[in-house]
Design a binder for these strands. Sequence first.
DNA 1: CGTGAGGTTGATCGCTTTCAACGGAGGTGG
DNA 2: CCACCTCCGTTGAAAGCGATCAACCTCACG
Lengths: 227, 227
Amino acid sequence: MLHVMTLNPANAARSNWGGDVVNAPCERVLAAHEPLAHEGDDSNYIYEIIEGVVSSCKIFSDGRRQIVAFAYPGELVGLGHQGTYRYDFEAVSVAKVRAIPKTQLLNAIRERPEMAEKLLDMATSEVAQVQEHSINLGRKTALERVASFLVDLAERKGGADDDVAVFELPMSRAEIADFLGLTIETVSRNLTKLRARHVIEVTQMTNLTIPDMDRLRDFAECEDEAL
Amino acid sequence: MLHVMTLNPANAARSNWGGDVVNAPCERVLAAHEPLAHEGDDSNYIYEIIEGVVSSCKIFSDGRRQIVAFAYPGELVGLGHQGTYRYDFEAVSVAKVRAIPKTQLLNAIRERPEMAEKLLDMATSEVAQVQEHSINLGRKTALERVASFLVDLAERKGGADDDVAVFELPMSRAEIADFLGLTIETVSRNLTKLRARHVIEVTQMTNLTIPDMDRLRDFAECEDEAL
DNA sequence: CGTGAGGTTGATCGCTTTCAACGGAGGTGG
DNA sequence: CCACCTCCGTTGAAAGCGATCAACCTCACG
């Protein structure tokens, strides 16, 4: 049965998709906010996130931005972009990525069928993530979106199904806003609202504590949080 | 090089993913609004759309709905839903689908590597579609969303890059609204706004004419409509 | 200690929602 | 054949949520 690999931190060290057997890994370290590739660039490489977070962002001619996804360690960026990239890719915080030439990936698929299966798993789990996010964008209030985002982040970072979560926010308010389809101000207001109700505790801007995940989940209005 | 197959009507008759070589196709005809599967059902089958349109819908406990995607002929529904389906699937109009047992699909992947590649293409193109839609939901105004939706629909139905498009709207205002993250009233208002500006012509509710696609594209605010 | 970037908070505006009424198409039964 | 009903779509008026505009705060850095 096809199954999606869990993308927990324990997997970060080794390659999820099996690319580690290929030599010349071509790793690249990115500073915070350093671009990895731009929309329209030739999509010669697919990038595997080793450490940190990378954003996929669409910028409109009038300045509007939408971050389509954050890619975390173990995930791929640039898969399925034929010819040229459809989005800007940029490191959110310091990040390390492995550049995989598309041609090499193609060969790997052809030679090792289990590789294709693994990539299919990753692609379908990306579909699931983006679909879940489009539900947030389409039908949730600002508060619910912020709460959903924090739930998602906490489940990635923190221990699996812990009741309490402590973690760092790698992204700025602006990036959260552009991901959630809101403004910086609205994100800030709703974070303080959650703080006021003691759903979250914020220490020095970038450090978060969630004393009760289930309470946060209530604010996210997700009946099926078991993704 | 990986490339996504074009999902134009010409391909609708035969199977896009190659499943036609497998016998016992198990076709199913659905009436308008007939459910194909429900969220939480065991995901034993993947469905290939042969004719018509099928929606993937999430329903909240408080009644809010979000249609995550419309699946058109040649596309798959249920791919990557492990264990149970994550959404309700339902025919928008009369539809014909082919039910493919998951186990059979798995075997096909293992035995025929080019099948895995094809499925990967379909999955990545689904990612692209959903990402594009989440941009609409996150950063576009109601008018832009409606226009974008019509552009998308016209490009699927009408001749490839025709200047003028004539086609039928298979879905109701409610379904459009739930797809675009709007209300029925807002969809209606913006359709009349487009009609008032002679961007579209509506005859008997379900029949649309777009005299100038580029003008409609202007309203969609998509600099890169070449997807 | 001055400066600037990022974050918070407040006041107002505007787009979309909500509530409500109306109209047309299709179906049913008298 | 027509009255009646229901569903769907449209249109109008009012309300509300998030955006916008603006001020202030905090902290890192020179």
